[in-house]
């Protein structure tokens, strides 16, 4: 079976503001199966967001191959949903217009797009808020809009960049459970970037640990916890704790490296 996502020997360099060249990712190898929920963890600045940008086609790799369903990625890849790290819903569009944007851009008539948008707004629990502007919503509600905006296009791959990191703990747990519910009704592969190991394990089938920058995959772990899961409770299971301890040993070293570097950089 062709993997949903495949990165082979991917290196990404950026022109640093100082004029030098900064290597964000080095020789990254990475495979996601169709329908698989993968989490990517790593210290800040290790290149997690960059990895998603490469998969989506927003950025080209400097070296190596990025393939989505066996097709080499050049430009924006088809069938991708992307929930950005910072707020990316359109502030001048209402909730309804925001969610309807994708279908409209893909040639669906205005009426049908709105019809489908209403359905998705209900599914993410925002019924009654169709005519609000984003500034009139809470952070959690804006994330729901972003989620509906992506899912309405029926993506085969959903990229999520620390989507819930700005939310309070209760809202976050709620959103995590809803994400799992919504995802289980699709056959999409998910790449979920987070710096929160608990979140990574609760949600995913597999966890990738990325090294402190330049990022590369340090190790991968299978999460053999049964589904459906309740994120609020799963962290108390003995198996969860075992997996957590195993991955944390690995991740801790990278976080320390990154931390030491930041300290030196700041000094």
């Amino acid at each position: 079976m062709t993997p949903a996502i495949e990165l082979r020997g991917v290196t990404k360099r950026f022109l640093a503001p100082s004029g030098g060249i900064y290597t964000a990712l080095r020789d990254l190898n990475f495979e996601v199966e169709p329908g698989e929920f993968c989490a990517v963890v790593g210290p800040t600045g290790c290149g997690k967001s960059t990895t998603l940008a490469l998969i989506s086609g927003l950025e080209p790799p400097s070296e190596g191959e990025v393939e989505v369903f066996g097709q080499s990625v050049g430009g924006i890849a088809e069938g991708i949903g992307y929930v950005f790290q910072s707020d990316a819903v359109f502030p001048w569009k209402t909730v309804l217009e925001n969610v309807a944007a994708g279908p409209r851009y893909r040639g669906v008539s205005n009426r049908d797009a709105r019809e489908r948008a209403r359905d998705w707004i209900t599914r993410v629990g925002l019924a009654g808020f169709e005519d609000r502007y984003p500034y009139q919503l809470s952070g959690g509600m804006r994330k729901r809009v972003a989620l509906a905006q992506s899912l309405i296009n029926g993506p085969r791959i959903l990229l999520m960049d620390e989507p819930f990191s700005a939310l309070d703990v209760q809202t976050r747990t709620l959103m995590e459970n809803e994400l799992l519910n919504l995802w289980s009704a699709t056959s999409a592969s998910v790449v979920f970037v987070t710096h929160d190991l608990e979140e990574a394990i609760s949600l995913s089938d597999r966890v990738f640990v990325i090294t402190a920058g330049p990022g590369t995959v340090k190790s991968t772990y299978k999460v053999d916890l049964p589904r459906p899961r309740n994120v609020a409770e799963i962290r108390f299971q003995p198996r969860f704790v075992e997996i957590y301890e195993e991955i944390w040993k690995d991740l801790r070293d990278e976080v320390l490296v990154s931390y030491e570097r930041q300290k030196r950089g700041a000094a």
């Binding site: 927003l58 950005f84 851009y105 893909r106 905006q149």
Partner: peptide, 25 residues
Amino acid sequence: DRNLIANARILGADDRRLTTEIIIP
């Protein structure tokens, strides 16, 4: 905001739509 442009492109906006629906507003 570059994020908004990236989001619109992912959602399928072409250049014309990008100008009329993102850039100008």
